[in-house]
Structures are given as structure tokens and as C-alpha cells.
Design a protein around this nucleic acid. Sequence first.
RNA 1: GCCGGGGUAGCUCAGCUGGUAGAGCAGCUCACUCGUAAUGAGCAGGUCAGGGGUUCGAGUCCCCUCCCCGGCUCCA
Length: 668
Amino acid sequence: MADITITLPDGSTRDVPKGTTAGEVAASIGRGLAKAALAATVDGEVIDLDRPIEHDASIAIVTPDTPAGREVLRHSTAHVLAQAVTDLYPGAKYAIGPAIEDGFYYDFELPDDARFSDEALGRVEARMREIVKADQPFERSEVGRDEGLAQFADQPYKRDIIEKVDASEIGASEVGEGTVVSLYRNRRNPTGGDGGDAFVDLCRGPHVPSTKRLGAFKLTKVAGAYWRGDEHGPMLQRIYGTAWESKQALEEHLHRLVEAEKRDHRRLGAELDLFSFPEEIGSGLAVFHPKGALVRKIMEDYSRQRHEAGGYSFVNSPHITKSNLFETSGHLDWFADGMFPPMTLDEGGGGVGTKYYLKPMNCPFHILIFRSRQRSYRELPLRMFEFGTVYRYEKSGVVHGLTRVRGMTQDDAHIFCSKEEMAGELHSLLIFVLELLRDYGLNDFYLELSTKPPGKGVGTDEEWEEATDALRAAAQAMGLELTLDEGGGAFYGPKISVQARDAIGRTWQLSTIQVDFQLPQRFDIEYVGADNERHQPIMIHRALFGAIERFFAILLEHYAGAFPMWLAPVQVTVLPVADRHDEYAVQITDRLRSQGFRTEMHDAHTDTLGARIRDAKMQKVPYVLVVGDDDIEHGTVGVNERGSDEPRRGVPVAELVDQLTTAAAARA
RNA sequence: GCCGGGGUAGCUCAGCUGGUAGAGCAGCUCACUCGUAAUGAGCAGGUCAGGGGUUCGAGUCCCCUCCCCGGCUCCA
């Protein structure tokens, strides 16, 4: 039999007989590698270890402690989950069960509309451990489409996937190509003859050689999920789990979850007394407490300052309006679901009355300001800025802390400019956005460009193309990673969104910059050009924070509650050691306050020094000062800087003030 | 909106199969006056989310509404 040449990751090559399996290649390299191997990458495609290699190829062995290895492990664990569920719930239908970030899930439909309870998770997990122990091999086979349909005669979701395989990408990724589908089966009695199939799934693979290779997993939660993500389709029962290459990696993952929970903005909001959601007000409606409102004010003040310098005009508009405004804007046609229902006023004899709506967006108001008189090209670009509070009737299941609320304030602006100005305006706008966000401590961004949705969209193709090109050019000029969201734009224009990664690597959509072809038309706004003709301006919507509430939450989590000096609601806490030091402590406090530092004093009457230090530390105050006899004598303070557990004694007050001044100016 | 889990003192939670509500922390008062992450004692605090029902009796069982949590769908 002819030999083939395989190339290993280190560049070395070896000749092996055609049909050698990836597992055999691993064994030929080393026993340890063979033992660790889960799958193999052959010419970039991850396949099972027992699949023969038929031609020259680059091959890499996939081990558990790699991203590819974990994916195989998680996917295989999902199969074990499905087997456990079908064992415990005869008649259960299984749908899809992919690996996801940090874990996996599997969707089921249980007989008689049964549901998983939290206790059921424990039983399922116990059954999974039995399956792992049983050391069932994963066996791949390929069958024709019809045979596949027959195999899953009583599995409607699998049949659906096979039937839609040619039409749907999801299907293709599940089963492979063409009219052949691949199956993976686990046999009940791997060693002692044919005990029949324990579980067969439609799957592209690859999988670990046998279930005993799994083990460091844990089922985490049950949830509902729509079949194929369609909210009009059936609701399935989903079980989520996490799986890792070792017990230790699993423990570390669980520990990370605990740490992430500690920086949850809802928790920090209560602990640091920043905001709350009184039940009396209603879902998704926050109140900001003094410290939270102070942080928010600092955020807003700085933003105003930057906008003023950036050539924006400040405007204001009311929270409610007669319905005709949103009829003209089209919001009642395409955004009515997101709006609070109207209140009807002045129902006189006729009982007709006038409907007023809470505004879900600020744009129509700004347009009315533009339209309040005739505009000249000399005024363009006209940039109107407002911290505009809007209300959106979010569906009850989606409200979430400050990141998804029903009442929020946008740092909203609308830029009216000529067609010719658009590209330059977008370019400078993007620079403005990124600079501002960096000032708030976010540094890791990527951009996303959303283009015309297929089959719909106002404006001509040329207009779309021009605006999209201008957005793309502006984005590319930033030198950041740019992803394409093909067809993801709104029907009224393309957009760029700025995505930011926070301190623990989560990404958040922040700023959106949206070109709008529709509203200028609907409101028929125009300006007089240098040619003395009337022209329709281009309109750009943009919000940099998105919503202040959300941005507040993102910063709070980004900093884990430890706001940098310039944002910290309390910058300095002064602690006299004993009552006799009060007078000196007051002097220090007054001096720092007069220099503009937000300073509090907690006297010795309230608690021991240790307790007061602990309190201030837990409130994440950047500087905790302790003053006692020595300090009075020498005109110094004891300085506890946040993040350091070594206090400095005897620091001259002038030196402290210098340090505080530097820290506050650093904006970081 | 949909699926699942919840709502007991300001916070975190206990309260078995229905039999008259409890702890820690926080708060207040008093004592302590202390040099770097919790001093001690005492006091006060709850229409058990709200409403209806079953029952001799409901925090506990049933129904409705509100609110929260985890997902799905949607989104700043």
C-alpha cells in the first residue's frame, strides 16, 4: 500500500501507510501524547482519532487542555447528557447540544410536557457519571439521508435538521455535507458483545474516543429555549453544563464565576449605596442614591465639557409628546411594541381626546428644533446634544439591573450635515468617541459595521453604499478590529457600533453611530445651500455611553466598584485615632475639601479604629487617612492607599495633597 | 412575552409533613478612646410582596397580580 506524507506542527514529516488513523500517528509520536489525545486536526479540520487519513496532510493531535480539545470534550459531554436524559425520561426528544463558551447545553422536549426541576439536575448528573464510568466508545458512521430519517423516526427535531440540511447552515454544521449524514453511537456494552445502542445522535463530530475521557463537568442550570431560536416555535427545556480537562480547571472556572459575581453591578450598587430599584416604582426603573448620583454627575459633567469643546450645541426636550410626532417619525409603525401605552387627555364630549406618549427616543424633538426655522448650509454640521431621558416598554423577562431598564438617559446627539460633509463628520466623530471612552478607562475596543438589511431599507442603493463606505472608511482609519454585521443595519440606515472589552474580558456594546435616511424625508427637513437651492441634510444619530445607566453599570463592573480617584464618590476618609485628635482631623478634612477633594471624617466616638478602617476599605475609598498624636506633633498624616496593604506613616500634608492632585488629574 | 426558580427585619438567610415568627450583620443607646480590615452590652425592628380562596387554624396548600433571579427571544 502506498505511503502518504504527514506533516506535524513542528514542521517534521513522516511517511505512513495510507489509511493510518490519527490515533496511530499520536501513538507513533509518544505514549503520553497518545494517552492525552482526544481528536486530531487534519488540514485544519478536527476529526476523530480513529478516522483513517487517506492523503498527504498536516496533522496536529488535539489534547484536552487546548481550546479545540475543550470543545471536543464539551460536545461529547453534551451527548452523555442527552443519553442520561433519554435514560431517565423515556420518550424524551432531543434537539441540539453544542459546545459553547466554557461549557455546553442540550435542548430537550420531555414527554407529557414534563419539566426539569433543580433536583432533576442532580439525578441527571448522577446518571451521566455512570455513563462516563461505563467507558462507552463513541462510534462514527455515515448513512444516507433516508436511512438517517429512518434512524430518527421518533425524533422529530433530528428529522427536521436532516430535512433542512441543504437549506440551512445550522443543519449543515450538525450533520455534514450532501446527502450523507453522520451519526455517533454509544454502545451499552462496549466489551461484552453487542448490548445494543445506548444512544445515537446525529452529529458531525468529532468526539472523544470514549466516555471515560470525560469527567470534570457539572450541570449548572435549566432554562427554556425556543427551537431554532424562534419565539413562535416550541419551547424546549435546555440544560446547561460546564466541562473542563481536569478537576482543577473546573474548580478554577467555578471560582471565576464567584469572582465575577462579586463585581456584579447590582450587588455593588447595594453594597456601595449607589442605586436601587424600589419595587414600588416598577420593573426596570432605578433611583440613584446620593453617592451614585454623584458619580453619575461627574460622568455627565465631563461628557458635557467634552461635547462643548467638540462643537456640540446643547438642547432640551420634554418627556412626552402628542402622538402625531411619533406618527410622523414612524415610531408608531415600527417601534410601538417598545413604547409605553399612551395616556389619553382632554376627552371632551366627543370622547376622542388626544393621545400622549412617553418618548422612546429623542430624535424627533431634535428634528423639530432643526425645523424651527430655515437653516443655511453655513450652520452645518449642526450637532445637537442632550442628556435625553427616554422610556421603553421592555418585555418583562429582559430587564436586568442597570444594563436593561425601562427608563434611561441617553447621551444622545443628532448631527445634521450635508452629504459632502458626512464622511469627514463620521471620521472625526469616531475619534471623538474613542477618546472619550478611553478617558473613562476603557481601552480595548473593536468596531462592528452593520449593513443594509436584505429586501428592505429606505433610501436608494447608492445612498446606502455611500453611507456604508463612509462608515467603513472611518472605521478602518481607527486601526481597530472591524467586524461585519452583514444585513444587520436598521431599515433606515447603516451603523457602526463600538464594542468594548472590560477588565474581565466581557464585551459590551457601547456607542452607536447610525446614518439615517428616513427621518429627514419623513420630516421633510432642508437647508439652503451655497447654490441657493434647498437640500435635504443627512442625519447621524449617535450615543456614546449608549445609556448613562448602562455605562454606569459597565464602569462599576469594570472597576469592581473601586472607581478611580476622579470618579470616586468619596475620595478621602479621615480617621482620628481618638477623640482628642478630632480637632486636627477636622482641620485636615477642611483643608482637603477646600482643595476640592471629596472628603469624609469618621470620628473615634463611633467605633474602634480597626472597624472604621475596615468600613472605609470596604467602601473602596481610594485614600484612608489615620491621624493621631504623632501626626499632630509633626503636621503629618498616616496614608492608606487603596490597593496597598502597607500604610505609610508620617506623610507631610503638603506631600499628600500633591499626591491626591496627581491622582485626580490622572483620570485613571 | 416564553420556560424554570424565587420573594420571611435595611441586608444575608433559618423556619419539618398547616398549630400563634428566629439568627448573624446593619441601625439606635450606653460603656470603651483605641496607630491600621469587625470592642462589648442593651434596645428596637416583620399586615412573612399584595389580593383572593381552602381550613377550626395559612409564612407553610390553591388561584390571580406585582417584583426579583437564571435562560430564550429582543435590545442602549
